[in-house]
Write a protein that binds this DNA or RNA. Structure first.
Length: 425
RNA sequence: GGAGAGGUGGCCGAGUGGUCGAAGGCGCCUGACUCGAAAUCAGGUGUAGGGCAACCCCCUACCGUGGGUUCGAAUCCCACCCUCUCCGCCA
């Protein structure tokens, strides 16, 4: 969310962003409402000041004069109360609009509407060439008895999965490999709950817009988060951190839940798009310094690229255009990995800079060392690795003619020295 | 789930209806002393919104959150959230 000061001072920039990001928000209505709220507040505050003055003089006036004083104060109080009710309504409406104010993208972010307007930054790795008919990941799983892909949906519904044997073990091995690599880069592992209250989802910006994509547990009024980012963002909510505490680097580890409400019929086969998955998340809180947060953005992107390189997967880095990047984001890069069965690139990592847009929502602040002023931090996040999705390109790119899968070198130690999996039956 | 205790500023902690944005201590900042430091002494030190050219000043709000009572609430009442102790249940 943007600060109201920024919006007042830069309405044209905000309007441009609303257009570029295809946000449904009437800025003129917002500004008009803001003016009303300010005027109403001033009126109420004047009344409050008068009531305070009267109350303070209460002890000083004679007994005879008190009834008049009380009467006046009561009358003012009643009037104030009526105004406060209208203020409450208007402030609520204003807040609802402020929740939908977009973060300002970096100047060089491509303007566009769909992923066709995303810009490919670079490609890394060779596309595999096979001299045999390849299998897709579902066929490989069935061939090697690595999961229950159809049976379990009878139990748990569509977009669920069960992994077995070497593949189940491989999932854990990948997590460990990535956590070790991130630890080396300074990211401390933290496990976080998938459960969170509504306000945590507002804090990241997932609500109100993404409400339909979160599972709700009405008995306890909790939601299941689709990313560790939800809880990590609210972890330091309301605190005033010391500048010396920053940056804070987390490798969040959590189960993630997504209703996939908007993706009916897409990717229903296999492990590409499921309701529950497990994710290692890179997360950064840093100083309110565009250069520093840009540097961290680079670090997070490099961390994710390192992961796909360790997995020996061909990938490309894409800079997301304004229409694709999400309400709060300042810059966003996706990593897309080659999926041979589909002959296309599929997103496995998403790297986002939010500047202070989330910090403002979640009330994440720190005290600057030089002038002792309190200001908002910057937040950034990127996938470390998400399973089972990453297994799709991993199995398919490294498959052999006999239906086994070669393991990337970096994974071998995590798999007890095995260089291949599969072929047992 | 049952019973009890409690939530106050960066931290600790006092405060049971007005003189309280809040004593005192710690921490931090500035100055004095010192070659320098420590110790000592003096002063300062919350956040947010509004007025204003202004980080001077003035007004308003905030003592877990939201309501209520009252001329007036950190203080009284209600609901909720969280923490701690004991019991129960439990991987």
């Amino acid at each position: 969310m943007l600060s109201i000061h920024f919006i007042r001072q830069n309405p044209e920039i905000v309007k441009q962003t609303i257009a570029d990001k295809r946000v449904d928000l009437d800025l003129d209505a917002l500004l008009a409402l803001d003016r009303e709220v300010v005027a109403l507040k001033q009126q109420i505050e004047e009344m409050a000041a008068e009531v305070n003055r009267l109350s303070k003089s209460f002890g000083k006036v004679s007994k005879e004069d008190r009834p008049a004083l009380i009467q006046r104060s009561k009358a003012l109080g009643a009037e104030k109360k009526a105004l406060q009710e209208s203020l409450r309504v208007e402030e609520e409406a204003l807040q609802a609009m402020l929740w939908r104010t977009p973060g300002i993208p970096a100047e060089d972010v491509p303007v566009g509407a769909t992923d066709d307007d995303n810009v490919e930054i670079r490609r890394v790795g060779e596309l595999p060439s096979f001299d045999f008919d390849i299998r897709d990941h579902v066929d490989l799983i069935e061939l090697n008895d690595w999961g229950e892909l159809s049976r379990v949906t009878e139990v748990s519904g569509s977009r669920t999965y069960a992994l077995k044997g070497e593949l189940a073990r491989l999932e854990v091995a990948i997590h460990l490999m990535v956590l070790d690599m991130l630890a080396e880069r300074g990211f401390g592992m933290i496990t976080v709950p998938a459960l969170a209250r509504e306000d945590a989802f507002y804090g990241t910006g997932h609500f109100p817009g993404g409400r339909e994509d979160a599972y709700h547990l009405p008995n306890d009024d909790l939601f299941l988060s689709g990313t560790a980012e939800i809880v990590l963002t609210s972890l330091h909510r309301g605190e005033i951190l010391d500048e010396a505490d920053l940056p804070i680097l987390y490798a969040g580890y959590s189960p993630c839940f997504r209703r996939e409400a908007g993706s009916a019929g897409r990717d229903v086969r296999g492990l590409m798009r499921v309701h529950q998955f497990t994710k290692v998340e890179q997360y950064v809180l840093c100083r309110d310094d565009p250069e520093e947060s840009a540097r961290w953005h680079g670090e997070l992107l490099a961390g994710a690229e390192k992961v796909v390189e360790l997995l020996e997967l061909p990938y490309r880095v894409v800079e997301c255009c304004t229409g694709e990047m999400g309400l709060g984001k300042h810059r966003m890069h996706d990593i897309e990995v080659w999926v041979p069965s589909a002959q296309t690139w599929r997103e496995t990592h998403s790297c986002s800079s939010l500047h202070d847009w989330q910090a403002r929502r979640a009330d994440l602040r720190y005290r600057r060392e030089d002038d002792r002023k309190v200001t908002h931090v910057h937040t950034l996040n990127n996938t470390g690795v998400a399973t089972p999705r990453i297994l799709v390109p991993l199995l398919e790119n490294h498959q052999t003619e006999d239906g086994r899968v070669r393991l990337p070198e970096a994974l071998v130690p995590y798999m007890g020295g095995k260089t291949h999996i599969g072929g047992a039956r």
